[in-house]
């Protein structure tokens, strides 16, 4: 069943149009990669989905039109975002960061600490004093604490040490295997995306140019639209 549907979505920053025709169909439990070169509209698409940027076209979550809703409402409906650049609440402790966003459901503090044992060890530390990798884990944990149906990860492994990246990928794999949550991933690590994702949507110049299962994504297409294969 379709969880998130974008049809003919457009969006602009003032007079500069950034999205021209984005189409995306994400099913429940699906792990989809949103791919494309820099500046092609991946993060802008996420902003429209999260209602942080006004857009036109059809935007449906669980069959409901969410284009007109304020961003806190779509978050309440089950859209969780791990934003680019982490942005934890820096003066709050790890536990407070997680509790501030808590909504009832599967995810609770012990479950988050099970997924990221490092966070459990640093419960009482303020977010500002964490390493980049730990802040990223906290940012993922914070989004999970809202118990979303769909988790959007925007550049979750960017700027992290290889070993920390690996931890994050393992965690994403666990999420997929153990909870059946749907995930939309933006990332530069093509290799990991190919391993972990079920499907992919490719964007170029604000338009969806390719969509299909990850297996059917050939290296020629990938090279053409993402620049690597």
């Amino acid at each position: 069943m379709t969880l998130l549907l974008l049809e003919n979505v457009t969006a602009s920053y003032g007079k500069a149009q950034a999205l021209f025709d984005v189409n995306l169909n994400l099913k429940e439990g699906e792990l989809m990669a949103l791919m494309g070169r820099n500046g092609m509209g991946k993060s802008t698409t996420v902003k429209v989905i999260m209602r942080m940027l006004r857009g036109t076209g059809n935007l449906l979550f669980e069959g409901r039109d969410i284009m007109g809703l304020p961003s806190h409402r779509v978050a309440q409906m089950g859209l969780g975002l791990v934003p680019e650049g982490r942005r934890c609440f820096r003066d709050l402790t790890v536990a407070e960061n997680l509790s501030a966003s808590a909504r009832l459901g599967y995810w609770s503090l012990p479950r988050i600490f099970e997924l990221f044992p490092r966070l459990g060890e640093r419960q009482v530390q303020v977010a500002d004093s964490l390493s980049g990798g730990e802040q990223q884990m906290l940012s993922i944990g914070r989004a999970l604490m809202t118990n979303p149906r769909l988790l959007i990860l925007d550049e979750a492994t960017e700027g992290l040490a290889p070993i920390v990246r690996q931890e994050i990928w393992v965690a994403i794999g666990k999420l997929k295997a153990e909870t059946g949550i749907a995930i939309l991933l933006i990332d530069k690590s093509i290799k990991e995306l190919r391993e972990i994702c079920d499907s992919a949507t490719l964007i170029e110049r604000g338009k969806t140019v390719w969509t299909g299962s990850m297996k059917s994504l050939d290296s020629q297409t990938l090279d053409r639209y993402v620049g690597v294969s």
Binding site: M50, M52, P70, S71, H72, R73, A75, Q76, G80, L81, P83, R87, F89, R90, D91, L92, E96, N97, S99, A100, S101, A102, R103, R142, A143, M145, T146
Partner: peptide
């Protein structure tokens, strides 16, 4: 309280607070 945490969070980052389903 959780209200206080949410208020603190809203002070520090309005956008992120919205993203976790709270209206700052």
């Amino acid at each position: 309280s959780s209200f206080g945490l949410a208020l603190s969070a809203a002070r520090q980052n309005t956008e992120r607070v919205r993203n976790v389903g709270l209206d700052p």
